[in-house]
Amino acid sequence: MKLSHIDKLESESIHIIREVVAEFDNPVMLYSIGKDSSVMLHLALKAFAPNNIPFKIMHIDTTWKFKEMILFRDQIAKTYNLDLIVHINQDGIRNKISPIKNGSKIHTDIMKTQALKQALDKYKFDAAFGGARRDEEKSRAKERIFSFRDKNHRWDPKNQKPELWNLFNTKINTDESVRVFPLSNWTELDIWQYIYQEKIPIVPLYLAKTRPIIKRDGMMIMVDDDRLEIKQNEKIEQKNVRFRTLGCYPLTAAMESAATNVEEIIIELLETKYSERQGRLIDSDQIGSMEIKKQEGYF
């Protein structure tokens, strides 16, 4: 029997997830509520069946996520009986950091990068799963599956351990850690195909619906709550939109769409001409920006 492409990816990911549980003392799965996280969680459920997932699931909450994302997160945690931790950078709350006032760069750094480091230090996790894929962005194409971080959580692209066969070097010294990317070899289309075939639940924001939208810097931003101040030249329009990626709502661009179910999304995706990271403002800060963020400790 020949395994299909998706079957191979699925088994490879499960192997990686089990390897972490076999080799590390205190792993955690980072859960961003997005479609990739949903697939990763689904794979973890399979890896340990018929038993529960033997590690914590952590969400780094920037407090600027779409309301629907938080609802969905809590629902999933309940359904699968997950050991969920939600971490918020309280320093950022005290300093009233906002993506609108401080810009995407500072907001992402404090509420995401710094928050993640705080949480990893607090719980002393030695391995953290992330849902990043190599096809997302050029600098990620060179990322290892087991990506080594020093005690300051920094990624050094020139000092990565070579990864041969599926023999992962899981050895680390005290205070060092790894980020593990079980979805490294999946493409965006693979993710959608898997969601479709396995009927994996996803946040309804991925599906088109009439939503309140303003246009800002050439992108459509959803007005999710009243923290988004509407400028004079802007006006709220009701538009049929959906999101290709999910993050902080003021930083996530919507796209006009009529796709109201997974099948229609996939058909739209097949016809589309834009790559998915374009919906995220953090990349366009400067050329190579994702790479700089990774070195600082962003996923």
């Binding site: 050029k138 060179k142 190579g288």
Partner: peptide, 9 residues
């Protein structure tokens, strides 16, 4: 299209 890391670029 292919070269990824800034330093290499």
């Amino acid at each position: 299209l292919i070269d990824g890391l800034q330093a290499e670029r």
